[in-house]
């Protein structure tokens, strides 16, 4: 099982922590969350899901503004933690505004 700690000693599984719902575009740099909703449709939604931005995916905001850059963990919050298994996705702000996450203690990772 993937149950390890980060450099700062925090465990990735704390991403299950309850938080408020916000769009990716409204996160601050370094904040993280778990994707909980998407208002995208059709091809945009299908492509972003396939790229890893699916419900329950863990994301961390790396760059605010245009584009929004997010680190996406491919693990599931209920199963693996996904640390060390990330990809980065650049998103137009208008897309980032329509993907919603339940925030976690992202600052703890840094």
């Amino acid at each position: 099982m993937l149950t390890s700690q980060n450099n700062d000693g925090s465990c990735c599984q704390n991403k299950d922590t309850d938080g408020h719902v916000a769009s990716i575009a409204s996160l601050k740099r370094g904040e993280s969350g778990v994707v909980c909703d998407s208002q995208l449709a059709g091809n945009d939604d299908a492509l972003l899901r396939a790229m890893g931005l699916h419900p329950a995916a863990w994301v961390r905001l790396c760059r605010e503004g245009e584009p929004c850059i997010v680190a996406v963990s491919s693990g599931s919050p209920g199963g693996s933690c996904g640390c060390g298994s990330e990809c980065r996705i650049g998103l137009a702000r208008s897309l980032a505004q329509r993907i919603f996450v339940r925030t976690t203690d992202g600052a703890a990772r840094r």
Partner: peptide
């Protein structure tokens, strides 16, 4: 997706602290 999580969780193992954070900081 659930199948992927199970496969990954069973086959993967993190040996000690991940070194991805330092690299992330540089990439950011």
């Amino acid at each position: 997706r659930a199948w992927c999580d199970v496969v990954y969780a069973e086959a993967g193992e993190l040996n000690g602290p991940t070194r991805a954070a330092a690299s992330d900081s540089f990439t950011d």
